[in-house]
Simulated assay, not measured.
Amino acid sequence: MLAQIVLFDGFDPLDVIAPFEVLSAGAAAVGGRLEVRLVGIDAPGPVTSGTGGLQLTATHVLAPTEPGFVIVPGAAGPVSADPDVVDTIPVLLARVGETGLPGKVRQAFSAPDTVVATVCGGSLALAMAGLLEGRHAVTHHLGNDVLEATGTHVVHARVVDDGDLVSAGGVTSGLELALHLLDRQFGPQVAHAVEELFEHERRGTVWRPIGSQPLPA
């Protein structure tokens, strides 16, 4: 199976690198049953992030119906009220909707063995493209009000597992997202081994729409 991490112009590097490292370690732990790729939306090649001009190389093109995970990062860039600064994070995320990614994510949602996962503003990019209405998700705390305005049910949790959609909050939550995906697919022993390797303990409870609902406080 594949873990495909999508690169687009202005992506946040940590949103990409944290899941990439965790899932790569998980792939080694399961004997290569998982392949981790950095993918372009329409073509392979270098893609420039929103942080300091850092570039990463997409080695493949996104194959949305392949079994596994399609992981969409958030964006990085200047946060300014200055109208002359156009590459703000909301603008970068909105531009994702003008690419071929929304169509490919729709294909991923329709594939029986594919899970769409997002880190930080990745869920907001998909929501603004009209893909998450009625779903449970989370984004960076600064964007949750916008996420809610798209018709998404915002859950204030570190990781939200809504079946074929798994989302994570702020930037470093990409670690928790990837560990949860390993746990979900390969079990807790694999996830725990990767936690020990990176000396990282997962934060928070993974929210899922199952079980008893708590009574009002």
Rank of each mutant, 00 (worst) to 15 (best):
D164T: 12
D183L: 10
V138W: 01
L175K: 02
T152N: 07
T172F: 03
D164V: 07
G169M: 04
D145S: 14
H136D: 10
G151W: 13
L131S: 05
T150K: 06
G170T: 13
R135E: 07
R158H: 07
G163D: 12
D183K: 02
E148L: 12
S167F: 08
N144Q: 15
E133R: 15
V171R: 00
V146D: 13
H141N: 07
V159K: 03
H140P: 10
V160K: 08
G174D: 03
G134N: 10
L165S: 05
L181M: 06
R184W: 09
G169F: 00
L179Q: 00
G163A: 10
L179I: 06
H180N: 01
D161V: 08
H140D: 15
L175N: 07
S173T: 15
L181Q: 03
A137N: 08
L126H: 12
L179M: 04
R184I: 00
A137Y: 04
H141S: 15
G170C: 10
L175V: 14
S167M: 09
S167Y: 02
G134D: 10
G151L: 11
T139V: 09
L182T: 05
E176I: 08
D164G: 09
V138G: 01
S173P: 02
V138R: 05
D183P: 00
R135F: 07
L181K: 03
G130E: 14
L132T: 09
R135D: 05
G151H: 12
T152F: 08
T150P: 06
E133T: 15
S173M: 09
L147Q: 06
L181V: 02
E133V: 11
D145G: 01
V166P: 01
G169C: 12
A137L: 08
V166E: 01
V159A: 11
L175R: 03
L131T: 12
D164Q: 15
E148K: 15
G130D: 14
V154Q: 10
L177K: 00
V171T: 06
T172Y: 02
D161R: 07
A178S: 12
L179C: 00
H153K: 14
D162I: 01
V155C: 10
E176Q: 11
G130H: 11
A149E: 14
V146T: 15
L182D: 00
D164N: 15
A168V: 05
S167K: 09
R135M: 09
G170A: 13
A129G: 04
L175F: 15
H153A: 11
L177Y: 05
R135L: 07
D164F: 02
L177S: 06
D164M: 06
L126P: 10
G151N: 11
E176W: 03
T139C: 09
D164S: 13
T150Y: 11
